[in-house]
Simulated assay, not measured.
Amino acid sequence: MTVTVTRTTVPEHGIVRYASIGGLDLEAGGCLPDVTLAYETWGTLNADASNAVLIEHALTGSTHVTRGDTDEPGWWEQLAGPGAPVDTDRFFVVSINIVGGCYGSTGPSSPAPDGAPWGSRFPLVTLRDSTVAEARLADQLGIRSWFAVLGGSMGGARALEWAITFPERVQRCAVISVGAASTAEQIAFAQAQTLAIRQDANFNGGDYYGGPFPEDGLALARRIAHITYRSAAELEGRFGREPQAPESPLQGGVLAARGRYQVESYLDHQGNKLVRRFDANSYIAITEALMSHDICRGRGPLPETLARSGARFFVAAVDSDRLYFPAQSRELAAALPGEVDVHVIEAPIGHDGFLTEIGQLGRQLRAHLSA
């Protein structure tokens, strides 16, 4: 059931709730009627609503950032929770499932006005559109200004869009492992992933609900993505050229019967895990939203665009990231007004270090949120 939320100090912590925010006119044209946003909260909103922090999830992340009343582990517990840098004993923390997602917000699997799933009819939603939608939910929660908005990867792009689209509503902004725009290479990787899904025999143009799901295409998309999430050194160190025992890549007689290398088995595992929890159309919708990421679109050069925001910025990168290179974070920081450091997570793992090693920046993030 969809619940329209008015200003409240929501008592449940880490429990998915739903809000209807009305129709949403879209940047690329068209409209989504009666949009629902799924979200979770932790902590208590204070009397003047000045302690609200928004944490934006990455591409296939959910709203469950940290533990709550269910005690289910969250995906960024090094960052948020009681006593963590984003201290839920101090802050009212909010996480919102992006429009187009499959964790409760309106997306391709949601009913359209005719009662059937949107499927192939779901419109293109940009990160800017999702920010406008989230602002309406913030209004319903009574939050006129965020103490901080932060995120990593696509979550960082969403945080940056918030700071520029609603500069009067963001006091601090942490942008981790992402640049000011998706590059041609990043768009190319993304297109390969969406094409893998679209070419699945069961995709049916996006109208596969009620029939076989395009699981093979989604699993292949995840394999492609995961290669960019991990560094070459990480893959070499963990797997090298080792076979997946008892299989042998050099036995079997024919190509179709050969065994796998360990790294192939690892990618198979990652693809199969995502298939069990994610919708293929949502993967396409959100990936295309990330492809749209360009903070300067319709706004002018990067320094001019960033000057719109008066937020205090925190910029960070993973030193081994080969999806969003540290140079993109340095370019962003150099274009911001004043002197903005680029904090570096040292992790051989690659892009995913923004999730697994965020604890390295605990001291710096605490300082940013205490300034």
Results as ranks from 00 to 15, higher is better:
residue 4 T to Y: 05
residue 7 R to P: 11
residue 12 E to W: 13
residue 15 I to L: 07
residue 16 V to N: 08
residue 21 I to L: 12
residue 28 A to I: 01
residue 31 C to F: 12
residue 35 V to L: 06
residue 44 T to D: 14
residue 46 N to C: 11
residue 55 I to D: 02
residue 57 H to D: 11
residue 59 L to K: 01
residue 68 G to R: 09
residue 74 G to W: 08
residue 88 T to N: 05
residue 104 G to S: 03
residue 104 G to Y: 04
residue 111 P to Y: 05
residue 120 S to L: 01
residue 123 P to A: 05
residue 125 V to T: 13
residue 131 T to D: 01
residue 137 L to N: 01
residue 138 A to M: 15
residue 140 Q to M: 15
residue 142 G to W: 09
residue 148 A to F: 10
residue 157 A to L: 05
residue 162 W to E: 03
residue 165 T to L: 13
residue 170 V to Y: 12
residue 172 R to V: 11
residue 176 I to V: 13
residue 177 S to E: 12
residue 179 G to V: 13
residue 180 A to R: 01
residue 185 E to I: 06
residue 185 E to M: 08
residue 188 A to C: 04
residue 207 D to V: 11
residue 208 Y to A: 03
residue 213 F to Q: 03
residue 215 E to V: 10
residue 217 G to L: 02
residue 217 G to E: 02
residue 226 H to P: 02
residue 228 T to N: 06
residue 230 R to I: 08
residue 236 E to M: 08
residue 240 G to Y: 15
residue 244 Q to L: 14
residue 247 E to R: 04
residue 252 G to M: 14
residue 255 L to S: 13
residue 258 R to D: 02
residue 258 R to P: 03
residue 263 V to Y: 12
residue 272 N to I: 15
residue 274 L to T: 14
residue 275 V to D: 04
residue 276 R to S: 15
residue 282 S to Q: 03
residue 284 I to M: 01
residue 289 A to E: 09
residue 300 G to F: 01
residue 302 L to E: 01
residue 303 P to L: 00
residue 305 T to A: 01
residue 313 F to L: 10
residue 316 A to R: 09
residue 319 D to G: 11
residue 322 R to C: 03
residue 324 Y to M: 02
residue 325 F to V: 05
residue 326 P to C: 13
residue 326 P to R: 13
residue 331 E to S: 05
residue 332 L to H: 04
residue 332 L to V: 06
residue 343 H to D: 08
residue 344 V to I: 14
residue 351 H to K: 10
residue 351 H to V: 13
residue 352 D to H: 04
residue 354 F to A: 07
residue 355 L to W: 09
residue 355 L to E: 12
residue 356 T to D: 06
residue 361 L to C: 07
residue 363 R to E: 08
residue 367 A to F: 01
residue 368 H to F: 15
residue 370 S to Y: 00
residue 371 A to V: 11
